[in-house]
């Protein structure tokens, strides 16, 4: 599903964010990506989301070298990935429904189908009945769940989460991770960047550890 082959990323100014990173995530796998802040977690996720391009090496997603993809095809490659952020990245002047529907509207899916799928996604994250609310009126955990519903609504084969539990208390964090487990169980590949080491250890999934841009451990 996802493969990094000798990937390096050097930012202008000579800062090496990633150095010769190699790893592979197979289809339907769930893994955590850890490391101190500044270790390169965000850069690694940005390479997968094609928000940045690698300086060296290949990033393969679905047997496609996404480091070489043309600008025109970037949006279509991104639709294969559901992304979740620590700061939710929701549209605050739109309702919960509109937020979750966004990827479907963009993909040009018909209204009837959108309604059905958004309700299904909101049902999965237990937010059914709050479609008409605005994100700001909901709690942090609920906002994060809107983000998750938006990420899974168009059924991408892979979910990337950047510190999804960053601002949540341990109980809520666990709930969120359990959501990811549910998606993983139906075959979605999940990669979660987090520095919440106790949580990761408790969950017992494969862990990819970055330190100063190098992959120091990929235990499974």
């Amino acid at each position: 599903m996802l493969q990094f082959i000798n990937v390096s990323k050097r930012y202008p100014g000579g800062i090496d964010a990633l150095k010769n990173v190699n790893f592979e995530l197979s289809n339907g796998e769930m893994a955590f990506l850890t490391g101190h802040s500044g270790a390169g977690k965000s850069t690694l996720l940005k390479l997968i989301a094609i928000l940045e391009r690698s300086t060296q090496g290949q990033v393969m997603l679905d047997n496609q070298n996404i480091g070489r993809i043309s600008k025109r095809n970037i949006p279509y490659a991104r639709r294969k990935i559901g992304m979740i952020f620590q700061d939710h990245r929701l549209l605050h002047d739109h309702t919960v429904f509109d937020n979750v529907a966004l990827p479907l509207i963009i993909a040009g899916i018909d209204r009837h189908e959108i309604k059905r799928r958004v309700r299904a996604a909101l049902d999965k994250v237990s937010l059914l009945g709050k479609e008409k609310r605005y994100p700001i009126t909901l709690s942090g955990g609920e906002q994060q769940r809107i983000g998750i519903a938006r990420a899974v609504v168009n059924r991408p084969p892979m979910i990337l989460a950047d510190e999804p539990t960053g601002n949540l208390d341990p109980a809520l964090s666990e709930e969120i991770i359990q959501l990811f487990e549910q998606f993983n169980r139906v075959g979605v590949t999940v990669l979660i960047a987090s520095h919440d080491v106790p949580l990761i250890q408790r969950m017992g999934y494969r862990t990819l550890q970055l330190s100063n841009g190098e992959m120091v451990q990929h235990s499974g």
Binding site: A49, P75, R79, L90, L91, L102, I106
Partner: peptide
């Protein structure tokens, strides 16, 4: 700006 960023992230074409 933020809205555009979000749209790009969920795969909106130019």
């Amino acid at each position: 700006h933020d809205e555009i960023d979000i749209m790009r992230l969920v795969g909106a074409t130019h």
